[in-house]
Design a protein around this nucleic acid. Structure first.
Lengths: 353, 353
DNA sequence: TTGAAAGCGCTAACAC
DNA sequence: GTGTTAGCGCTTTCAA
């Protein structure tokens, strides 16, 4: 941007309402010429000298293009919309960060509209619909839907009107492309890490067994074990509420098994907190007596636990970025790779294994 | 919105590009009439019957107003912009939530533009300026600046062009109105809580003594003590890094004092985590042997510690809402109450006192 | 190379 | 009550 290098005169700054015509007049050229240089139009030979005069006029007048007018005339807004419950329930904030960074790079604007987790799947889709509608009124060129936790969702019908991509969730009606974490690979990575440290008997603190995260992560755990010629002892897999207390109780049950494991795979970090307590209560040391690995990488938890929790991270930021990239492709009419893109969950080594 | 109650015919939905003229034609009225009923204009007697015909036309055609065109013609965008580092460093996310909820209520859109904490105060204001500029190009009617932690900031000059309010930070140049937490009252509340439980000798784990949060909270603590005819023992006030480790070290120093306190006021929750460890290490129980109170209410920490941490909350959401309310007043040409609005920090009782 | 002219979809006087 | 008329600030043919 030229404007950021030199600033317009103080007087000019105050005097808003400078239009393109003013610039043209000041530079002694036509509005078309100004439009051309400002939008960097190709093969439209404008002399270097004219271009310079225009740029200069822009600066001294403190001209600032009117994005709305431009959008109206060109019939493209350069806007994407994202409707998400993440602002409401700040867990996967990095999705927004990732999407926004990418949009910023692509010189697009991201309109963020709030949604409401409670309504996201149920019949009561009030906020979703309203948000989508609002976004569409702004003439966004693409729509993103992002959820705090991996699940199936129903997207308002009107979303079909522009390219739409789901992030950290998938279309329960199976039509829209989505971007989700590769839970299975993540589960595998976690258990492989444990195996690498010599653990052979592994306990698993499970989530609600029906949600995609639980299904995938457990499958991955089994994959790893199988590859090593081992298998999961069903006695050592216990589900609990996805909270510290739930983790505590599940851990107690596992630790008190007559033949207890030497390592614990907690399907999320919150439950790992509870597991820590159960372990310490029994006078065991982490990781010497028992190793613990988590999932989610909730920084505030994982990095502040003592010892710091080794865990598998959810690729929120990457999913966000991939979301807008996919939208870019879609709006450009390009084919996309797959209906569902799986994103890797990287292992974060800390000190609990 | 009428549209959300009945949905347009499937065919109509597909066929985008329905304009107000189409609606007028379909309803057999003028565009003006349509514009009037759609924008709920007052004292412009349109017969109930006409109005009904128009609404119906809107529905069957699946008409959706073009917000950009409307903005261009009416010269008001109904947009506010917020530039913040919060998306980058997700701590005070509730500011965004509060602002967004309020904006939504007021039927305004909030454009969120990312900023970069590192650059926020220094000479290198690259992102800030670019974000502000972008927002202004969208013709936002007001600007919000929000910081993750309470401090002085420099706002790009161009922000002066529209009403601007600072949230959780203040204008180092002292011109712009701001909304910040009442740190002093918060510190007072914390220590009063401790006094209420009979504690007389209180230790303080301090932050960097120069930042507004530290200054205010400590002052508040002193206020409370003074009111009770007590004073702070300087030996028992020790500053540390604002981390768990910093808290641990400071706590050790305080706890090993020959005449140790019976309660600890940690100026933030992260440091409280470390304090917990130091306390447990010494075989002391919370709150029986020593009470602990924090500050910040970082849910993930405060609610998962054992015992759960009693703490003082930062009113992020409220500040966000107040921010847009202030903007509303400003854009409406109303006077605002004060240059700096202080927002209360409520006490959150849990189990550590 | 540049300019004229039409029009994007809407609002808002003002006249009918 | 309703229609006419000008724009809002810009892009984009099409001619010059």
């Amino acid at each position: 941007m030229a404007k950021s290098t030199a600033s317009p005169s103080a007087a000019a700054v105050r005097q808003r309402g400078v239009t393109m015509s003013d610039v043209a007049k000041h530079a002694g050229v036509s509005r078309t010429a100004v439009s051309f240089v400002l939008s960097n139009r190709e093969n439209t030979s404008i002399s270097e000298e004219t271009r310079a005069r225009i740029i200069e006029a822009v600066q001294v007048l403190g001209y600032r293009p009117n994005a709305g007018a431009r959008a109206l005339a060109s019939r493209r807004s350069d806007w994407y919309g994202i409707v998400t419950e993440i602002v409401t329930a700040p867990f996967a904030v990095d999705v927004i960060k990732g999407a926004q960074d990418q949009a910023w790079l692509d010189r697009r604007f991201l309109l963020i509209a709030p949604s409401d987790q409670a309504d996201a799947v149920g019949p009561n889709q009030g906020l979703e619909d309203a948000a989508t509608e609002k976004l569409l009124e702004q003439r966004v060129e693409g729509l993103l839907y992002a959820a705090t936790f991996h699940r199936g969702v129903h997207v308002p019908a009107s979303a079909q009107e522009v390219p739409t991509v789901l992030i950290n969730c998938f279309d329960a009606d199976g039509k829209l492309p989505s971007i989700v974490p590769d839970e299975r690979a993540g589960g595998r990575v976690a258990v492989e890490r444990l195996l690498r440290s010599g653990h052979r008997r592994i306990g698993v603190i499970n989530l609600d067994p029906d949600i995609p995260a639980a299904v995938g992560r457990l499958e991955g755990a089994r994959d790893a074990l199988t590859s090593a010629g081992l298998e999961l002892d069903p006695d050592l897999v216990v589900a609990g509420y996805a909270t510290a207390d739930g983790g505590y109780e599940a851990a107690c049950q596992i630790l008190d098994h007559p033949d207890p494991p030497t390592a614990l795979f907690c399907l999320n970090d919150r439950m790992a907190t509870g597991a820590y307590d159960a372990i310490k209560e029994r006078g065991l040391r982490i990781p010497d007596d028992i190793a613990v690995i988590g999932f989610d990488n909730q920084e505030l938890i994982a990095a502040y636990l003592r010892p710091k929790l080794t865990t598998v991270a959810l690729p929120f930021q990457k999913m966000g970025a991939l979301g807008v990239q996919t939208l870019n492709a879609l709006t450009a009419g390009q084919p996309i790779l797959a209906d569902q893109q799986l994103v890797d969950c990287p292992l974060l080594e800390r000190s609990s294994v």
